[in-house]
Design a protein around this nucleic acid. Structure first.
Length: 211
DNA sequence: ATCCCGAGGG
DNA sequence: CCCTCTGGAT
């Protein structure tokens, strides 16, 4: 265990993050894996609160892939308009719903390869569905994870793929998803993009970034 | 003005 | 590698 993950700095930070954000999962509201997939597709370049406002209404009208596949593009666009990038997202939702309905019997596929063939589903979205939906080890890397991991010297990559590889190599797979959520919450509440709240950060004594 | 749990296309 | 898509909150 300790010789597999020998970086004392990283181990200390990971432990502190996991403890501090224990129990903080996703803020997205959903009741099925299909709904989770839709919520994550909608979450690009907006915040979870905006997504929840939309999905509360969307899932009331279309709770599964069959119902969503039956909606017109215009209907979907109208419902999701307030989250931005809505034309792409509406098309992705409709097409993904059709594929899941027709090729997967209405059930979201459980492999990364299958998930990433769905329109609107890239590596990050697939990782979220794998971990949150199916409890399969994955470490989704978004802008928060990339920024916070670099500031804390847990990674030094400029790309999500690089950051994911570096983080995964330093953590047991059963912790990948939890550290993802911890880094997300840290990035949202303390380690903000423009104005990091270093004065109130519990990691400042071990953080090389501190401003 | 800047940011928000990105993906697809050129 | 770059660009585009996009409304709402702060």
């Amino acid at each position: 265990m300790s010789n597999k993950y020998p970086n004392p700095h990283a181990n200390k930070i990971f432990t502190a993050l996991l403890q501090y954000y224990k129990g903080h999962g996703t803020a997205l509201r959903f009741s099925t894996t299909f709904q989770l997939l839709c919520a994550v597709i909608l979450s690009a370049q907006t915040n979870d609160n905006q997504v929840n406002k939309i999905t509360d209404k969307l899932f009331a009208v279309a709770s599964d892939s069959a119902a969503l596949a039956a909606m017109s593009l215009e209907q979907i666009e109208e419902l999701i308009k307030t989250c931005g990038l809505y034309k792409n997202k509406a098309r992705h939702l409709q097409q993904a719903a059709r594929i899941i309905n027709e090729q997967y019997g209405g059930e979201v596929p459980q492999t990364r390869e299958e998930l990433e063939t769905l329109p609107g589903v890239g590596r990050k979205t697939a990782s979220v569905v794998l971990f949150v939906g199916f409890n399969i080890p994955a470490l989704p890397v978004d802008t928060h994870v990339l920024r916070v991991a670099n500031r804390l010297a847990l990674a030094d990559s400029s790309t999500p793929a690089g950051t994911e590889k570096q983080l995964c190599a330093q953590l047991a797979p059963e912790l990948w998803g939890d550290i993802h959520h911890a880094l997300i919450w840290h990035g949202r509440t303390i380690c903000l993009g423009r104005k990091p709240q270093c004065a109130k950060c519990f990691l400042r004594q071990d953080c090389p970034f501190v401003v």
